[in-house]
């Protein structure tokens, strides 16, 4: 199975005008030209006139260059940055409800602690946990949880920004996952 954290994927950070239908235009373009979207996250930026869409694309479905050029022809797209795993800070959030009997509950809690996740809710036979971090870390966590039985799982898809230039002083210590 292709997992969202796989390196074969490529991340596009797309700055768009915050106008009705922009997401549909992007989604349509991918569908029409046969490009695969692995995940997609969209939200307004600090400037209300613009939103940022982070798209993880399956680069095997089409040459990345062609995808980017076709995307850029959309009138509402202002800027596209291709982010490789090496020059981007990438984050994703996952929440999952896991089967948790009295025997397995402590093991799951232990896993959550190791991964620095959170327990969101505890029931008699299940437990809901959350984890944010680099997509690959979430992949690993998800794999480990599988053995216990996943009732429901939702990932947000990744969001990403370019890493700060090395020459720019970094003001806060960034906790690299």
């Amino acid at each position: 199975m292709n997992r969202p954290g796989d390196l074969a994927h490529h991340t596009l950070s797309v700055l768009v005008e915050n106008k009705a239908g922009v997401l549909a235009r992007v989604a349509d373009l991918f569908a029409r030209r046969g490009y695969n979207i692995v995940s997609l996250a969209v939200a307004p930026t600090d400037d209300v006139a613009f939103s940022r869409i982070t798209i993880v694309v399956d680069v095997e479905s089409a040459p990345l260059e062609q995808i980017v050029k076709q995307l850029f022809k959309l009138i509402n797209i202002v800027e596209i940055q291709e982010l490789s795993a090496f020059d981007a800070v990438e984050r994703e959030l996952m929440i999952a409800t896991i089967e948790a009997s009295t025997e397995t509950r402590t093991q799951i809690v232990e896993l959550v602690n190791i991964f620095e996740g959170k327990i969101l809710a505890v029931g008699t036979a299940a437990i809901t946990v959350s984890l944010d971090g680099a997509p690959s870390k979430i992949d690993d966590f998800e794999t480990l949880l599988h053995d216990y039985g996943i009732r429901d799982l939702q990932r947000t898809g990744r969001i990403a920004l370019p890493k700060m230039d090395r020459s720019v002083p970094v003001l806060r210590a960034v906790n690299e996952a």
Binding site: G21, A24, R25, D28, L29, I75
Partner: peptide, 14 residues
């Protein structure tokens, strides 16, 4: 209309 014509126009507006 804008949905139907999205892929057959350079751009469309509502």
């Amino acid at each position: 209309t804008t949905g139907i014509t999205r892929s057959v126009t350079k751009h469309n507006f509502l």
